[in-house]
């Protein structure tokens, strides 16, 4: 698989001088085409999808997945996975919820503590992966289960329930809420601030990836670890930084979900880790590392959000939701793959 992937891409650049081909050869082009196809389909099939209220719904849905997908894409380009990314979104929100409602801590302080804990767990993930040389898939699967269990057990222990409610009554709630949970109404459509976060995160990630030394190192450690080490790339620092970035993004998403609804369930985020990976892959990331883009991952999340809400808009039996999602995502991956192959210079 690795060889094929390298060949697919390796064949690509000879043709890059031609401008159209140059565009087609970008990792995010497949996702762009797929997103357009999904948009057109639901716009024609339903008459609410392409309205301001409709767009508000699917953009909101895509935004939190988008933030995570971009961070996970960086990590995947760096050659690692983080299965604890999903549960971490719930974990960070629960920390804030418990510290404020159970211990009466200032909400800003609680948010900062939550961020520090998240970053520490991210750093620990990275450190264990690098020190032991074990696959990150296994290490973070462990973290995932540890956190998922702790989320439920600790929440139940302290509150007697499996969720935290009444966040809105916490002092200073109104001072922090707008940062993560506010919205504006345009033409009947509700647009949340999370969409802005999503765009900002994507822009910063793209800048880092393509225009900084750190970005160079991310591609290098994912593409050829030993070579990177030989030329003096700080491999350990880069990888740990990537795990911390994913954890930091999970904190942001945790805050967004907490302050949008003012409640948090103990099982929030469980099962979403694979969706982030799917979004990143749809966006052109190689599972083997060393190749991909932040914009692509953001587009992958956009596709996911549009499909997710499009199904509801189309009033299909929602029991089919996952099946349709899976099929749509597979299709998008095939399309993405096909476009990439076309771009590799007239490959059949």
């Amino acid at each position: 698989m690795t060889t094929t992937d390298i060949m697919t891409i390796a064949l690509r650049p000879r043709v890059e001088r031609r401008p159209i081909r140059r565009v087609l050869a970008r990792p995010e082009t497949g996702a762009f085409v797929a997103a357009l196809a999904v948009l057109v389909f639901f716009s024609i099939y339903t008459n609410t999808f392409l309205t301001l209220p409709g767009a508000g719904v699917w953009l909101e849905s895509a935004s939190t997945f988008g933030i995570m997908a971009v961070a996970v894409a960086l990590l995947m380009i760096g050659g690692e996975f983080d299965l604890s990314a999903g549960v971490m979104t719930g974990f960070t929100a629960l920390i804030v919820g418990i510290l404020t409602t159970q211990f009466g801590l200032n909400i800003w302080v609680a948010a900062v503590i939550s961020l520090i804990v998240a970053l520490a767990i991210g750093a620990l993930n990275g450190y264990v992966v690098m020190r032991t040389g074990l696959p990150s898939f296994i290490v973070t699967l462990g973290t995932f289960f540890v956190l998922a269990g702790a989320d439920l057990a600790v929440t139940k222990l302290l509150t007697g329930q499996v969720s935290i409610q009444g966040m809105a009554k916490v002092p200073n709630y109104d001072s922090i809420q707008p940062l993560f949970g506010s919205s504006i109404t345009i033409g009947g459509g509700v647009f949340y601030v999370s969409v802005v976060w999503w765009i900002v995160v994507t822009a910063i990630a793209t800048w880092v990836l393509l225009r900084t030394r750190a970005g160079n190192w991310i591609f290098a450690v994912g593409g050829a670890l030993n070579s990177s080490r030989q030329v003096g790339v700080p491999v350990m620092k880069t990888k740990i930084g990537l795990f911390m970035t994913t954890a930091g993004a999970a904190w942001l998403v945790g805050m967004i979900s907490l302050f949008r609804t003012s409640t948090v369930q103990a099982n929030t985020g469980v099962g979403q880790e694979f969706i982030y990976i799917i979004c990143a892959v749809v966006g052109g990331c190689l599972l083997t590392g060393g190749y991909g883009s932040a914009v692509g991952a953001a587009l992958g999340a956009l596709i996911y959000g549009m499909v997710f809400q499009g199904i509801t808009f189309a009033q299909w039996d929602t029991n089919w939701l996952r099946t349709v999602l899976g099929a749509m995502l597979l299709l998008a991956v095939f399309l993405n793959h096909w476009v990439r192959r076309r771009a590799s210079g007239g490959a059949q």
Partner: peptide, 15 residues
């Protein structure tokens, strides 16, 4: 000590 998927110039200055 090169990274095959990275452009020549990025490899040249890597690290």
């Amino acid at each position: 000590a090169v990274v095959p998927l990275m452009p020549v110039w990025r490899n040249f200055f890597l690290g």
